[in-house]
Protein backbone atom coordinates (compact mmCIF):
# COMPACT_ATOMS: atom_id res chain seq x y z
CA UNK A 1 0.00 0.00 0.00
CA UNK A 2 2.73 2.36 1.07
CA UNK A 3 5.05 1.43 -1.79
CA UNK A 4 2.17 1.91 -4.18
CA UNK A 5 1.60 5.38 -2.81
CA UNK A 6 5.31 6.16 -3.03
CA UNK A 7 5.54 5.04 -6.63
CA UNK A 8 2.50 7.19 -7.40
CA UNK A 9 4.19 10.22 -5.91
CA UNK A 10 7.36 9.34 -7.84
CA UNK A 11 5.42 9.07 -11.10
CA UNK A 12 3.61 12.35 -10.49
CA UNK A 13 6.43 14.57 -9.22
CA UNK A 14 9.49 12.85 -10.67
CA UNK A 15 11.34 15.98 -11.93
CA UNK A 16 10.79 17.76 -8.61
CA UNK A 17 12.09 14.78 -6.65
CA UNK A 18 15.14 14.52 -8.90
CA UNK A 19 15.80 18.21 -8.28
CA UNK A 20 15.53 17.76 -4.51
CA UNK A 21 18.02 14.87 -4.60
CA UNK A 22 20.27 17.02 -6.79
CA UNK A 23 20.11 19.93 -4.33
CA UNK A 24 20.99 17.66 -1.40
CA UNK A 25 23.96 16.17 -3.26
CA UNK A 26 25.13 19.60 -4.40
CA UNK A 27 24.91 21.01 -0.87
CA UNK A 28 26.97 18.07 0.40
CA UNK A 29 29.63 18.79 -2.22
CA UNK A 30 29.88 22.54 -1.64
CA UNK A 31 28.71 24.55 1.35
CA UNK A 32 28.53 27.60 -0.92
CA UNK A 33 25.63 26.11 -2.89
CA UNK A 34 22.60 26.70 -0.66
CA UNK A 35 23.12 30.37 0.14
CA UNK A 36 20.47 32.98 -0.62
CA UNK A 37 22.93 34.79 -2.87
CA UNK A 38 23.82 31.72 -4.85
CA UNK A 39 20.21 30.53 -5.19
CA UNK A 40 19.20 33.95 -6.51
CA UNK A 41 22.20 33.80 -8.81
CA UNK A 42 21.16 30.40 -10.20
CA UNK A 43 17.50 31.44 -10.56
CA UNK A 44 18.52 34.60 -12.40
CA UNK A 45 20.90 32.77 -14.74
CA UNK A 46 18.33 30.04 -15.35
CA UNK A 47 15.41 32.37 -16.00
CA UNK A 48 16.30 32.82 -19.69
CA UNK A 49 16.64 29.12 -20.39
CA UNK A 50 13.49 28.46 -18.34
CA UNK A 51 11.44 30.91 -20.41
CA UNK A 52 12.75 29.25 -23.59
CA UNK A 53 11.79 25.90 -22.04
CA UNK A 54 8.23 27.27 -21.65
CA UNK A 55 8.30 28.15 -25.35
CA UNK A 56 9.66 24.78 -26.42
CA UNK A 57 7.26 22.87 -24.16
CA UNK A 58 4.27 24.63 -25.72
CA UNK A 59 5.23 23.56 -29.27
CA UNK A 60 6.54 20.13 -28.21
CA UNK A 61 3.13 19.45 -26.61
CA UNK A 62 1.59 19.80 -30.09
CA UNK A 63 4.09 17.23 -31.35
CA UNK A 64 6.22 19.95 -32.99
CA UNK A 65 9.57 21.58 -32.32
CA UNK A 66 10.95 25.12 -32.62
CA UNK A 67 14.71 25.40 -33.06
CA UNK A 68 14.51 29.01 -34.26
CA UNK A 69 14.14 30.44 -30.73
CA UNK A 70 17.86 31.32 -30.47
CA UNK A 71 17.76 33.37 -33.65
CA UNK A 72 14.39 34.89 -32.74
CA UNK A 73 15.74 36.13 -29.42
CA UNK A 74 18.90 37.47 -31.08
CA UNK A 75 16.99 39.38 -33.75
CA UNK A 76 14.36 40.83 -31.42
CA UNK A 77 17.04 41.79 -28.89
CA UNK A 78 19.12 43.40 -31.62
CA UNK A 79 16.07 45.32 -32.88
CA UNK A 80 15.44 46.64 -29.37
CA UNK A 81 19.09 47.70 -29.01
CA UNK A 82 19.05 49.30 -32.43
CA UNK A 83 15.97 51.38 -31.55
CA UNK A 84 17.43 52.39 -28.18
CA UNK A 85 20.68 53.47 -29.83
CA UNK A 86 18.64 55.60 -32.22
CA UNK A 87 17.21 57.36 -29.16
CA UNK A 88 13.78 55.73 -28.97
CA UNK A 89 12.09 54.92 -25.67
CA UNK A 90 12.32 51.66 -23.73
CA UNK A 91 8.57 51.09 -24.17
CA UNK A 92 8.80 51.30 -27.95
CA UNK A 93 11.91 49.08 -28.06
CA UNK A 94 10.22 46.43 -25.93
CA UNK A 95 6.98 46.51 -27.93
CA UNK A 96 8.80 46.24 -31.26
CA UNK A 97 10.91 43.35 -29.98
CA UNK A 98 7.80 41.50 -28.79
CA UNK A 99 6.01 42.15 -32.10
CA UNK A 100 9.01 40.76 -33.98
CA UNK A 101 8.90 37.65 -31.78
CA UNK A 102 5.20 37.08 -32.44
CA UNK A 103 5.70 37.74 -36.16
CA UNK A 104 8.52 35.21 -36.50
CA UNK A 105 6.53 32.68 -34.47
CA UNK A 106 3.43 33.24 -36.57
CA UNK A 107 5.49 32.84 -39.73
CA UNK A 108 6.74 29.48 -38.43
CA UNK A 109 3.19 28.52 -37.45
CA UNK A 110 1.67 29.40 -40.82
CA UNK A 111 4.27 27.43 -42.77
CA UNK A 112 3.89 24.45 -40.46
CA UNK A 113 0.10 24.37 -40.18
CA UNK A 114 -1.14 25.71 -43.56
CA UNK A 115 1.52 24.16 -45.79
CA UNK A 116 1.86 21.07 -43.63
CA UNK A 117 5.66 21.36 -43.56
CA UNK A 118 7.93 19.61 -41.05
CA UNK A 119 8.40 21.85 -37.96
CA UNK A 120 12.09 20.92 -37.69
CA UNK A 121 12.79 22.01 -41.27
CA UNK A 122 10.70 25.18 -41.18
CA UNK A 123 12.29 26.39 -37.95
CA UNK A 124 15.73 25.34 -39.20
CA UNK A 125 15.15 27.65 -42.15
CA UNK A 126 13.89 30.56 -40.04
CA UNK A 127 16.77 29.95 -37.61
CA UNK A 128 19.16 30.65 -40.46
CA UNK A 129 17.12 33.55 -41.88
CA UNK A 130 16.89 35.45 -38.61
CA UNK A 131 20.48 34.76 -37.57
CA UNK A 132 21.35 36.35 -40.89
CA UNK A 133 19.10 39.36 -40.35
CA UNK A 134 20.70 39.74 -36.90
CA UNK A 135 24.15 39.90 -38.52
CA UNK A 136 22.80 42.47 -40.96
CA UNK A 137 21.18 44.60 -38.27
CA UNK A 138 24.22 44.50 -35.95
CA UNK A 139 26.73 44.57 -38.85
CA UNK A 140 28.52 41.82 -36.98
CA UNK A 141 29.42 43.89 -33.93
CA UNK A 142 27.60 44.17 -30.59
CA UNK A 143 25.16 47.09 -30.24
CA UNK A 144 25.70 48.74 -26.85
CA UNK A 145 22.76 49.89 -24.77
CA UNK A 146 23.05 52.53 -22.08
CA UNK A 147 19.38 53.36 -21.45
CA UNK A 148 18.97 53.05 -17.63
CA UNK A 149 15.25 52.17 -17.78
CA UNK A 150 15.91 49.38 -20.26
CA UNK A 151 18.75 48.03 -18.14
CA UNK A 152 16.32 47.55 -15.23
CA UNK A 153 14.64 44.68 -17.11
CA UNK A 154 17.63 42.38 -16.87
CA UNK A 155 19.60 44.00 -14.08
CA UNK A 156 16.98 45.45 -11.72
CA UNK A 157 16.07 43.97 -8.36
CA UNK A 158 12.79 43.83 -6.47
CA UNK A 159 13.02 44.36 -2.68
CA UNK A 160 16.78 44.45 -3.16
CA UNK A 161 17.15 40.68 -3.63
CA UNK A 162 14.89 39.25 -6.35
CA UNK A 163 16.12 40.01 -9.85
CA UNK A 164 13.52 41.17 -12.38
CA UNK A 165 14.10 38.22 -14.79
CA UNK A 166 13.01 35.84 -12.00
CA UNK A 167 9.76 37.80 -11.59
CA UNK A 168 9.20 37.75 -15.36
CA UNK A 169 9.74 33.99 -15.39
CA UNK A 170 7.29 33.47 -12.51
CA UNK A 171 4.59 35.58 -14.14
CA UNK A 172 5.01 33.83 -17.50
CA UNK A 173 5.04 30.41 -15.84
CA UNK A 174 1.77 31.12 -14.02
CA UNK A 175 0.14 32.40 -17.21
CA UNK A 176 1.32 29.47 -19.32
CA UNK A 177 0.33 26.96 -16.64
CA UNK A 178 -3.14 28.46 -16.49
CA UNK A 179 -3.57 28.69 -20.27
CA UNK A 180 -2.45 25.12 -20.91
CA UNK A 181 -4.41 23.51 -18.07
CA UNK A 182 -7.53 25.61 -17.65
CA UNK A 183 -8.57 26.88 -21.08
CA UNK A 184 -10.08 25.20 -24.16
CA UNK A 185 -7.00 26.36 -26.10
CA UNK A 186 -4.74 24.48 -23.69
CA UNK A 187 -6.82 21.33 -23.93
CA UNK A 188 -6.69 21.59 -27.75
CA UNK A 189 -2.87 21.80 -27.64
CA UNK A 190 -2.70 18.59 -25.60
CA UNK A 191 -5.27 16.85 -27.81
CA UNK A 192 -3.39 17.75 -31.02
CA UNK A 193 -0.19 16.34 -29.54
CA UNK A 194 -2.03 13.21 -28.42
CA UNK A 195 -3.72 12.53 -31.74
CA UNK A 196 -4.05 15.29 -34.32
CA UNK A 197 -6.49 13.38 -36.52
CA UNK A 198 -8.83 12.68 -33.60
CA UNK A 199 -8.58 16.30 -32.44
CA UNK A 200 -9.49 17.51 -35.94
CA UNK A 201 -12.45 15.13 -36.18
CA UNK A 202 -13.76 16.26 -32.80
CA UNK A 203 -13.96 19.81 -34.12
CA UNK A 204 -10.67 21.37 -33.00
CA UNK A 205 -9.35 23.99 -35.43
CA UNK A 206 -5.97 22.25 -35.45
CA UNK A 207 -4.36 24.70 -37.89
CA UNK A 208 -5.10 27.79 -35.84
CA UNK A 209 -4.17 26.14 -32.56
CA UNK A 210 -0.82 24.95 -33.93
CA UNK A 211 -0.02 28.33 -35.46
CA UNK A 212 -0.86 29.98 -32.14
CA UNK A 213 1.52 27.62 -30.31
CA UNK A 214 4.41 28.79 -32.51
CA UNK A 215 3.37 32.43 -32.11
CA UNK A 216 3.56 31.96 -28.32
CA UNK A 217 6.99 30.35 -28.71
CA UNK A 218 8.21 33.34 -30.75
CA UNK A 219 6.78 35.78 -28.21
CA UNK A 220 8.50 34.04 -25.30
CA UNK A 221 11.79 33.92 -27.25
CA UNK A 222 11.60 37.68 -27.80
CA UNK A 223 11.08 38.19 -24.05
CA UNK A 224 14.37 36.33 -23.54
CA UNK A 225 15.97 38.51 -26.23
CA UNK A 226 14.94 41.63 -24.30
CA UNK A 227 16.19 40.23 -20.99
CA UNK A 228 19.53 39.16 -22.46
CA UNK A 229 20.15 42.47 -24.24
CA UNK A 230 19.36 44.30 -21.03
CA UNK A 231 21.43 41.97 -18.82
CA UNK A 232 24.51 42.28 -21.04
CA UNK A 233 23.89 45.98 -21.83
CA UNK A 234 24.36 45.04 -25.47
CA UNK A 235 22.89 42.96 -28.29
CA UNK A 236 25.32 40.32 -29.47
CA UNK A 237 25.25 39.02 -33.04
CA UNK A 238 25.72 35.47 -31.76
CA UNK A 239 23.25 35.82 -28.87
CA UNK A 240 21.25 32.69 -28.12
CA UNK A 241 23.16 30.47 -30.49
CA UNK A 242 22.39 26.81 -29.63
CA UNK A 243 20.18 27.92 -26.73
CA UNK A 244 17.36 25.86 -28.26
CA UNK A 245 19.35 22.75 -27.29
CA UNK A 246 19.46 23.64 -23.59
CA UNK A 247 15.75 24.49 -23.71
CA UNK A 248 14.88 21.16 -25.34
CA UNK A 249 17.05 19.39 -22.75
CA UNK A 250 15.20 21.26 -19.98
CA UNK A 251 11.80 20.20 -21.34
CA UNK A 252 12.93 16.58 -21.68
CA UNK A 253 14.50 16.47 -18.21
CA UNK A 254 11.19 17.89 -16.97
CA UNK A 255 9.40 14.89 -18.43
CA UNK A 256 7.98 16.41 -21.63
CA UNK A 257 7.58 13.77 -24.32
CA UNK A 258 9.02 14.73 -27.71
CA UNK A 259 6.14 12.77 -29.27
CA UNK A 260 3.75 15.41 -27.98
CA UNK A 261 0.68 15.45 -25.74
CA UNK A 262 2.59 14.79 -22.53
CA UNK A 263 4.31 17.22 -20.23
CA UNK A 264 3.89 20.13 -17.85
CA UNK A 265 5.37 23.59 -18.24
CA UNK A 266 6.11 23.79 -14.53
CA UNK A 267 8.25 20.66 -14.74
CA UNK A 268 10.10 22.05 -17.76
CA UNK A 269 11.13 24.95 -15.53
CA UNK A 270 12.33 22.39 -13.00
CA UNK A 271 14.32 20.81 -15.84
CA UNK A 272 15.88 24.18 -16.63
CA UNK A 273 16.71 24.63 -12.93
CA UNK A 274 18.46 21.26 -12.84
CA UNK A 275 20.65 22.25 -15.82
CA UNK A 276 21.35 25.66 -14.27
CA UNK A 277 22.27 24.14 -10.89
CA UNK A 278 24.51 21.64 -12.61
CA UNK A 279 26.47 24.42 -14.37
CA UNK A 280 26.64 26.33 -11.10
CA UNK A 281 27.83 23.49 -8.85
CA UNK A 282 30.48 22.41 -11.35
CA UNK A 283 31.94 25.92 -11.33
CA UNK A 284 31.69 26.16 -7.54
CA UNK A 285 33.71 22.94 -7.39
CA UNK A 286 36.27 24.32 -9.89
CA UNK A 287 35.68 21.41 -12.26
CA UNK A 288 37.56 22.07 -15.50
CA UNK A 289 35.62 22.96 -18.63
CA UNK A 290 36.54 19.69 -20.33
CA UNK A 291 34.89 17.59 -17.61
CA UNK A 292 31.88 19.92 -17.32
CA UNK A 293 30.90 19.28 -20.92
CA UNK A 294 31.11 15.51 -20.44
CA UNK A 295 29.20 15.57 -17.16
CA UNK A 296 26.38 17.69 -18.61
CA UNK A 297 25.83 15.17 -21.38
CA UNK A 298 25.81 12.24 -18.96
CA UNK A 299 23.25 13.93 -16.67
CA UNK A 300 20.90 14.59 -19.61
CA UNK A 301 21.24 10.96 -20.66
CA UNK A 302 20.49 9.69 -17.16
CA UNK A 303 17.44 11.95 -16.87
CA UNK A 304 16.04 10.67 -20.14
CA UNK A 305 16.71 7.06 -19.12
CA UNK A 306 14.87 7.51 -15.81
CA UNK A 307 12.01 9.06 -17.74
CA UNK A 308 11.83 6.25 -20.30
CA UNK A 309 11.95 3.58 -17.57
CA UNK A 310 9.21 5.22 -15.50
CA UNK A 311 6.88 5.47 -18.45
Amino acid sequence: MNTKKLSEIWAKYRPVLIMIVFIIVAECLSRKFLTVNNIMNVLNQTSMNAILALALTTVILTGGIDISVGSTLAFSGAAAAWLLRAGHSTVLAVIVALVIGVAIGTLNGIFISRWNLQPMIVTLATMSIFRGTTYLLTTGSPISVSNPAFKMIGGGKLFGTIQVPIIILLVLAVIMHYVLNNTPFGRHIYSIGGNEEAAYLSGVNTKNVKAAAYAISGLLASVVGIIMTSRLSSAQPLAGQSYEMDAIAAAVIGGTSLRGGQGKVVFSIVGALIIGMLNNILTLLDVSTYYQTVIKGIVILIAVMIDAKSN
Partner: peptide, 16 residues
Protein backbone atom coordinates in the same frame (compact mmCIF):
# COMPACT_ATOMS: atom_id res chain seq x y z
CA UNK B 1 34.95 33.93 -25.86
CA UNK B 2 31.25 34.77 -25.23
CA UNK B 3 29.90 37.73 -23.22
CA UNK B 4 26.82 35.99 -21.85
CA UNK B 5 28.87 32.98 -20.79
CA UNK B 6 31.55 35.25 -19.35
CA UNK B 7 28.94 36.88 -17.13
CA UNK B 8 27.43 33.58 -15.97
CA UNK B 9 30.78 31.91 -15.31
CA UNK B 10 32.14 34.90 -13.42
CA UNK B 11 28.95 35.19 -11.32
CA UNK B 12 29.49 31.57 -10.33
CA UNK B 13 33.20 32.17 -9.64
CA UNK B 14 32.30 35.06 -7.33
CA UNK B 15 29.92 32.78 -5.44
CA UNK B 16 32.72 30.29 -4.88
Amino acid sequence: FDKSEGMTVFENMLQA
